[in-house]
Design a protein around this nucleic acid. Structure first.
Length: 594
RNA sequence: GGCCCCGUAGCUCAGCUGGAUAGAGCAACUGCCUUCUAAGCAGUAGGCCGCAGGUUCGAAUCCUGCCGGGGUCGCCA
């Protein structure tokens, strides 16, 4: 039950009615107006700007927006559940709902509990269809660091959110297992392999010196023995690379699992380069673009600003990305004839289109921002503008401890890994804090503050609200052992007894959840869920605190059986929404936190 | 220099795709509580929304130009 959506439909119907009487044009686009909470809760429960939005169309029969608003308000005032509808300001309509409406909302919550707010199946519109969310996609050359973690958590929460909002979501990881960097990884692993067989080694610049490759070297030694020692690189490179990438991916999957993240698809870049009947997926994708007249041989002007040392003007194969909004056409081949990263990425996104996704979302680090336009151009070109690619850029994470920056020494490959952070502060803190910030804003992550059990720590504040609500439930059972506190049974509680303003405020906040989910999903902004949960927790804590001075407001009142049942129904509704929202974020909802 | 992101209270940040008197948390100030409902509570103060134009009934939000910060700039991924 989404009261905002309900009233949006009612207002639309009223507008249709007026249109039928000839005083408004037919077929007005209902998507143009909104039904939202009023700016100030004292104004009412719902507000709509419909009269102002259609002021122009109404001009012939209504002198100003207020006149149209007056007519709409008059109709709304007759509607079921409406206490009052009045016109305010330039033409807002504020609606005050009867208390029963909120009782209905709570009954709806109790009926579905953690599925409250979940999109109905098979709905139409932008929040439906097959969506591909590609995230993490860290190079398989070492453990993940904290920055990777942010993209990982963001992508995962966004995928959850879209799923909850009605999309069919595939979570995907693109393994960059094809380029010079994995060759360097293989060479590093080869040295570790020799080391494992007793040699003393030195790791030259340009290779990966981290200890984490020792295990990979030992594993290779176990499978191959000394067999690779005398071989030329051309013979050992491929098997060592396969083993090293495999080991790195196993480590990365472990790190991700520690963050409660799993992908349905791991897509290997290397497979795009492999030829079948002499043609690779990359060749095929380029040919498809060429067939559309979007690939040509030409020269690029040198980049403005400082010229790279080794700049040479040469003819090359270019993708005409400027035809789709890019600033300059982009090369598809390197000087050695191999394909650029973009070429592979084009082929990769072609596979996503071929697999039937109607919306693509990529999560990247902010340092790849310059790459967005060409990729969107590529997807537009490949899909004839039918498939939308949204690229979400995640800004940097600055690790702090008690207000002081944590040194991130990259010397000898020794840096703070994501795993170390997760092990230190826990998954919940990492996930929540990384989502308690817009993705494109830099994030300060303080290892000391996120485990603080105080009001100042949002993770604790929200989880504690859930634990506190559960505690109220336990108290209720202690006072009334015969209570059936299943959600289904509580839906039959005398909810009309809920009359205190704190209780109503809580019900109102709960009523916002479905709308919040839709908006957050449509905007691809999971952080809104985190902020909503914080607000909801705060309404609950405030009401709870009032019970300290005024015991009659407490959820459990031994002498008031019916009232307690109603309040238990409210508190259970709250746990449903808190658990649901935390679930979307991938954060646990603990029953107690002692 | 081109492109992208950011600029909102002293600090850290929201602001629901153009709505009403711009919000929260720290910090500051003022009270209250010394509990057993669980890690304090209630309140006050604090703002040319970087600057200047433009679009319209209406702009923190959209457009243009500046200023400041960050990122990026054929072969890395």
């Amino acid at each position: 039950m989404n009261i905002f959506a309900d009233f949006h439909a009612r207002v639309a119907a009223i507008l249709d009615c007026i249109a039928a009487s000839g005083r408004l044009p037919e077929g007005l686009d209902a998507a143009r107006f909104v039904v939202e909470p009023p700016k100030d809760a004292s104004l009412g429960d719902l507000a709509t700007n419909a009269a102002m939005v259609f002021a122009k169309e109404a001009k012939a029969h209504f002198a100003n927006p207020r006149q149209l608003a007056t007519e709409i308000a008059a109709a709304l005032a007759q509607a079921e559940g409406v206490e009052q509808a009045e016109v305010a300001g330039p033409g807002f309509i504020n609606i005050r709902l009867k208390k029963e409406v909120f009782a209905d909302v709570l009954r709806a919550v109790l009926a579905s509990c953690e599925d409250y707010g979940r999109a109905p199946k098979g709905r139409e519109g932008s929040l439906s269809g097959k969506v591909n969310v590609e995230y993490v996609s860290a190079n398989p050359t070492g453990p993940m660091h904290v920055g990777h973690g942010r993209g990982a958590v963001f992508g995962d929460a966004l995928a959850n959110l879209l799923e909850f909002a009605g999309c069919e979501v595939t979570r995907e990881y693109y393994i960059n297992d094809a380029g010079a960097q994995v060759d360097a990884l293989a060479r590093s692993a080869y040295l570790r392999y020799r080391e494992a067989l007793g040699e003393t080694i030195a790791i030259p610049d340009g290779l990966y010196p981290g200890d984490y490759l020792k295990a990979a070297g030992q594993a290779i030694a176990r499978s191959y023995g000394p067999a690779l020692l005398d071989k030329p690189e051309s013979e050992w490179l491929a098997p060592v690379r396969r083993a090293a990438v495999g080991a790195m991916m196993a480590m990365i999957r472990d790190d991700l699992a520690a963050l409660r993240i799993t992908h349905e698809v791991f897509f290997s870049e290397r497979t795009l380069h492999e030829k079948q009947n002499g043609v690779s997926d990359i060749d095929a994708a380029i040919e498809r673009l060429r067939a559309k007249g979007l690939v040509y041989e030409g020269r690029l002007p040198p980049p403005k600003g400082q010229l790279p040392e080794d700049w040479e003007d040469r003819q090359q194969t270019l993708f005409k990305s400027t035809a789709f909004g890019d600033d300059i056409d982009r090369p598809l081949q390197k000087s050695d004839g191999s394909h650029t990263y973009l070429a592979a990425d084009i082929a990769y996104h072609q596979t996503k289109i071929d697999r039937g996704f109607t919306a693509l979302i990529d999560i990247w680090g902010a340092d790849h921002g310059g790459y967005v336009k060409r990729m969107q151009a590529a997807v537009a070109a490949l899909s004839d503008r039918k498939v939308d690619l949204d690229v979400k850029l995640c800004q940097m994470v600055r690790l702090m401890r008690g207000g002081e920056p944590v040194k991130m020494s990259k010397r000898s490959g020794d840096f703070v890994t994501l795993r170390e952070v997760v092990d230190e502060v826990g998954v919940d803190a990492v996930r929540f804090m990384m989502l308690y910030r817009k993705n494109d804003a830099p994030l300060e992550f303080d290892l000391a503050k996120v485990i603080e059990q105080s009001k100042d720590n949002p993770v604790f504040y929200v989880q504690y609200a859930h634990a506190r609500a559960k505690s109220a439930l336990r108290r209720a059972l202690a006072a009334f052992p015969d209570f059936d506190v299943s959600a289904a049974a509580l839906a039959g509680a005398p909810l009309e007894l809920l009359a205190d303003e704190g209780e109503i405020a809580l019900a109102k906040s709960i009523a916002q959840y479905p709308r919040l989910i839709e908006a957050a999903a449509a905007a691809h902004e999971p952080h809104r869920v985190a902020f909503y949960l914080y607000d909801l927790a705060s309404v609950f804590h405030a009401h709870w605190n009032r019970g300290k001075d005024r015991p009659q407001l407490r959820f459990v009142n031994a002498g008031e059986r019916d009232l307690t049942r109603a309040r238990v129904a409210l508190v259970v509704s709250l746990t449903c929404v808190l658990a649901s929202g935390l679930g979307v974020l991938g954060v646990s909802a603990p029953d107690e936190m002692r």
